[in-house]
């Protein structure tokens, strides 16, 4: 579906409002109010009749939840289906709009959780950490760490939000092809591998080289492996206090 001048402006409003998708996250409807808030400019534009507008608003107050960034694809598709429904195009219906949201929410959330929270976020953190440690002697250059991480993360984040709305609207459900494509998977796998390389770099540089003590050379990697093993069984908070206690004992007798 083509985007004409007026509708492009409305989709830009949807894009801006999508940043508040989770402002009123609730256990009852999850992101439903946020979704309505984001799609509101489309509904106000398409449904001038008050009764029809009420129906449109109410159908978006059904339960809805997905990954907040990837939700843009669903917003784009919903805007398209709302327009088709408002224009009376054959096959368009309120049920189609509601069902599309319900069907797409789960798979999109799974993708977002594993790729955005599971890869991009730790990758950005790894980049920040490596830059901070490299420039740890110069406080001014240390600011590059959070700055670079911010740019890396938001390049993917904002691009996904904007592109999601535009391709969701223009391509409909075919837009998901670009999300789940092999190219996208390869990109995330590349970041994951690069992340692991960065961690090994940090470990070798940070701990093995600073210590001349043989017991420390053995203790640090051993503790790393113990932590990797234990973190599947214990919470991050418990492990933090455990690390402080073990580090305290080691620091008492081996310095």
């Amino acid at each position: 579906m083509e985007i004409n001048g007026n509708f492009r402006k409305i989709l830009k409003k949807v894009f801006a409002r999508s940043f508040l998708l989770q402002a009123l996250w609730s256990y009852k409807g999850m992101q439903n109010i946020g979704f309505l808030y984001a799609i509101k400019p489309v509904l106000d534009f398409l449904w001038r009749d008050e009764e029809k507008r009420k129906e449109a608003y109410l159908r978006h107050l059904d339960f809805f939840n997905t990954h907040p960034y990837c939700a843009s694809y669903i917003l784009g598709i919903t805007a398209r289906y709302e327009r088709e429904f408002a224009e009376g195009i054959k096959g368009a219906s309120a049920e189609k709009i509601v069902n599309t949201k319900k069907i797409l929410g789960g798979p999109i959330a799974a993708f977002g959780d594993s790729m955005i929270w599971g890869v991009i976020r730790p990758f950005a953190a790894a980049v920040a950490v490596v830059v901070i440690f490299i420039f740890s002697r110069d406080i001014n250059l240390m600011w590059l760490g959070p700055s670079v991480a911010f740019v890396v993360f938001n390049f993917v984040h904002i691009r996904m939000r904007y592109r999601g709305i535009i391709s969701g609207y223009t391509k409909g459900e075919a837009a998901f092809g670009e999300v789940f494509s092999g190219r996208s998977q390869r990109f995330f796998n590349f970041l994951r591998t690069l992340g692991i390389v960065i961690i090994w770099f940090l470990l070798v540089k940070g701990f093995m080289r600073v210590s001349t003590n043989v017991s420390a050379k053995i203790a640090y990697p051993a503790f790393f492996l113990i932590m990797v093993f234990l973190m599947r069984k214990f919470s991050a908070v418990f492990l933090f206090y455990f690390a402080v206690v073990i580090g305290g004992i080691f620091g008492r007798f081996y310095h």
């Binding site: 940090l202 701990f207 932590m227 492990l239 690390a243 073990i246 580090g247 305290g248 080691f250």
Partner: peptide
């Protein structure tokens, strides 16, 4: 030295 153990936990 205690701090290094916290770092190791972080990297793990």
């Amino acid at each position: 030295i205690a701090m290094r153990f916290v770092y190791i936990l972080c990297f793990a």
